[in-house]
Simulated assay, not measured.
Amino acid sequence: MSAQTGTTAEIEARVRAIVGEVLWVAADDIDAAAQLIDYGLDSPTAIELTIQLERAFGVDIPEDAAAQLNTVSEIVEYVRAES
């Protein structure tokens, strides 16, 4: 894990903030294990979320990988693995 990425808790906080911004949900209201579709994720917002995550963490998230990232927890694990 790079110093730029941070600890798991820091990554999760940043992911929650990004998800909240993209989906117009308060970051504190997002359950890390809940399906993002339950917060309103659809195809256009999934694309925007992927772009924001790539920028924030400096990782590449291919379309097939992005389709498998359905929760904040899954995104955090992906970012940790790719950093």
Rank of each mutant, 00 (worst) to 15 (best):
M1L: 09
S2E: 08
S2R: 09
A3Y: 09
Q4F: 06
Q4I: 05
G6F: 09
G6N: 08
T7W: 02
T7G: 07
T7V: 05
T8V: 08
T8R: 13
T8N: 05
T8K: 07
A9Q: 14
A9H: 11
E10L: 07
E12D: 11
E12W: 04
E12Y: 05
E12A: 11
A13H: 10
R14V: 09
R14H: 09
R14L: 10
V15S: 04
V15R: 01
V15C: 07
A17W: 07
A17E: 10
I18H: 00
I18T: 05
I18Y: 00
V19F: 02
V19Q: 04
V19N: 03
V22M: 13
L23Q: 13
L23F: 14
L23I: 15
W24P: 07
W24C: 12
V25Q: 13
A26D: 15
A27T: 11
A27E: 13
D28I: 09
D29L: 12
I30C: 02
D31F: 08
D31V: 11
A32P: 03
A33P: 05
A33D: 12
Q35T: 06
L36V: 03
I37F: 10
I37A: 14
D38N: 13
Y39V: 07
Y39L: 10
L41N: 06
S43A: 13
S43K: 12
P44H: 10
P44E: 09
T45K: 15
T45H: 15
T45A: 14
A46M: 06
A46F: 04
Q52G: 03
Q52S: 02
R55V: 01
R55N: 03
R55M: 04
A56C: 03
A56P: 01
F57A: 01
F57S: 01
G58H: 09
G58T: 07
V59W: 09
D60I: 13
I61C: 08
I61R: 08
I61E: 03
I61K: 08
E63C: 11
D64A: 15
D64C: 10
A65F: 08
A65P: 07
A66Q: 13
A66D: 14
A67D: 15
N70M: 13
T71I: 02
V72T: 03
V72L: 02
V72P: 01
S73W: 00
E74G: 00
E74D: 03
E74P: 00
I75P: 00
V76M: 05
E77K: 00
E77Y: 02
Y78Q: 03
Y78F: 12
V79Q: 00
V79W: 03
R80E: 08
R80K: 10
E82S: 10
E82A: 11
E82M: 08
S83E: 03
S83A: 15
